[in-house]
């Protein structure tokens, strides 16, 4: 069981961003991707989620052996991909609770209705875990939320949707240290043998709280170096200069 990204090539407006990227994330593992600005980290997460601004010009993505490269964004989500956004969208007039209900409902077979009582009970328990006030259930999705509240909301959605593979795109950006701990706690509570994580970050700090099994360095649309958790510490200390040396 794994998420396999195989020789992935993608362009945006004709400009190549991903240039033959290979990565395997087995279920049960946390992989971190670090890399300088512009290396294609966020693009990778969006391409795997199926964003149609990017054209996939080669390669494929396999989810537990099934090629999801041709699936729509919502189909990939229902198949088990979850993207926690760096900049979550605001959806005015749609309450958080209704949004989550619609997302859960979308996972049920036709004609089957969500059990509203059980749904709310579960949502409240998870909100408590993330130290989110109950008022967020009736507030419009992300509208007027602080940076930290938006990121907690992403993790709440991740917890409610129970995905197979989670892509966290710079989840630590805009978070103070307390919020970071809460978010990390939420992510850690979801770690299991059945689930894989890809954590995209600029800073080693997040990885103090979400301990990765593997760390990869991305540059110019490819993975250029892989190692254990210690690689992140090394990068924090020496930066990405080694990329220039090898170039």
């Amino acid at each position: 069981m794994s998420l396999i990204i195989e020789n992935l090539h993608a362009t945006v407006d004709g400009t190549p961003i991903l240039k033959g990227l290979n990565l395997e994330i087995p279920a049960g593992e946390v992989h971190a991707i670090m890399g300088p600005n512009g290396s294609g980290k966020s693009t990778l997460s969006k391409v795997v989620a199926g964003h149609d601004d990017y054209e996939v010009t080669g390669g494929r993505v396999l989810l537990d052996g099934v090629d999801i490269s041709e699936l729509e964004v919502d189909e990939r989500s229902r198949a088990g991909i979850f993207l926690a956004f760096q900049y979550p969208s605001e959806v005015p007039g749609v309450s958080n609770a209704n949004f989550l209900r619609a997302a859960r409902q979308a996972r049920l077979p036709d004609g089957e209705e969500i059990d509203a009582v059980a749904f709310y009970k579960e949502m409240y328990a998870k909100m408590d875990e993330l130290e989110m006030d109950r008022k967020f259930t009736s507030r419009s999705v992300n509208e007027g939320f602080s940076g930290g509240e938006k990121k907690r909301n992403e993790i709440l959605q991740m917890m409610m949707l129970d995905p197979r593979y989670c892509l966290l795109d710079e989840t630590d950006s805009g978070l103070d240290i307390d919020a970071l701990k809460v978010v990390a706690k939420g992510v850690n509570s979801m770690r299991s043998e059945a689930r894989g994580f890809l954590v995209i970050t600029h800073y080693q700090r997040l990885l103090d709280y979400i301990k990765p099994d593997h760390v990869h360095v991305m540059a110019d649309g490819q993975i250029v170096k892989s190692g254990g958790a210690e690689l992140a510490l090394e990068l924090e200390k020496s930066g990405y200069d080694f990329l220039k040396q090898t170039a």
Binding site: V73, D74, S77, F85, V91, N98, A106
Partner: peptide, 19 residues
């Protein structure tokens, strides 16, 4: 916005109607 909703599993038509 539509990408965001779709990324949560909501199909494109339902996402547009929700918005």
């Amino acid at each position: 916005e539509i990408f965001y909703l779709q990324a949560r599993g909501i199909d494109s038509k339902s996402a547009r109607n929700l918005v």
